[in-house]
Amino acid sequence: MKDKKTLTFSIMDGPYEQARTVTVFRLLDNAARRGYNLNVFAYEGAVNLPFSKQSKHPNAVHGHDAAEEDHPLPKDWVASLIQTAKKHGGALDWINCGLCVDERGAHEAIDGCRRGTPGDLWNWAQQSDNTLIVGTR
C-alpha cells in the first residue's frame, strides 16, 4: 500500500476512570481501517486495558442481566482492534510496560499483547511516521 503509515501511541490511563481511552481507541479504529501499522505502548495504568480477567456483569440499575447489559470490556476492544488492523492489511502491536505490569500484578494479558520497556517506545517512535503521547491528567 503506497500510503501505508506507521503510527505509535503511548497511553497511561487505566480503564473505567476517564475518557481518554475511548478517544485513543477511536483513533486506533480509524487508523486500523486504513491498513496502517499501529504501535501501542501501554504505560502505568494502561497495562490493565488488555487484562484478560475482565468480565461482564449484570446491571440491576439498568434492569439488565449480564447478557442484556453486554458490558464493554477494554480487553475485547483491544483484541478487536488487533483483528481489525490485520483484516485491513496492517498490524497492531501492543506492548505493556513490564515494570508497570509487575507492580499491578497485571501479568495475564490477552494474546497479542507483550511485555516491553520504554526503550521499545523510543525505537517505535524512531521508526514511525508519527507518535502521539497521551498522558494522564
Binding site: D3, L7, A31, R34, D129, N130
Partner: peptide, 17 residues
C-alpha cells in the same frame, strides 16, 4: 470527524495531546 486527527498524524504534524 476524528478522521482529521488520523489524517494529520499520518501527515507527520507535530502532535501534542
Amino acid at each position: 470527524p476524528i478522521d482529521v486527527v488520523v489524517d494529520q498524524l499520518a501527515e507527520g504534524r507535530k502532535a501534542i495531546w
